[in-house]
Amino acid sequence: MPLPHLPLDAITIGAHADDWPAAITAAGDALVRSGAATSNYTDRMIEVIREFGAYIVIAPGLALAHARPGADVLADGLCVVTLAEPVAFGHPHNDPVSVIVGLAVTGADDHLQFVAELANVFNDPKVIPALAGATTAEFVQSVFGQTVAPE
């Protein structure tokens, strides 16, 4: 399974967020726009962080917003939000966050290949700074597109 399509309406460049819930909401809004989830999924992504902490900040500057599959996930989906000003999530090593990748999956079992592709993209340490500095949604698309092309 390749990465789900990353349509332009699932990408927000330079979002303004005062705090981490606002940043996650921007990612949730992008998933709603692209038809991957309903706004209830946004609330559940925020709930995960309230319950377990900022562990979703999995690399310097990057948060992987997600929750479990549920009725509010309409399709497998990916979104990317870059923040105009970085936001602290409360992670001891990886704060502040300037890029949020939002993930919605319909089932837990079949998303591994899809996540492996995501790892392929981000195992290149240049990718997070490149995304943080992106000025167009098309550039963000190309970062995900060119790296998942067959080798």
Partner: peptide
Amino acid sequence: MCGVGLGTSAILKVN
């Protein structure tokens, strides 16, 4: 291990 058992933990598993 991650909070919900997919997503972040899947990335950690792959790597």
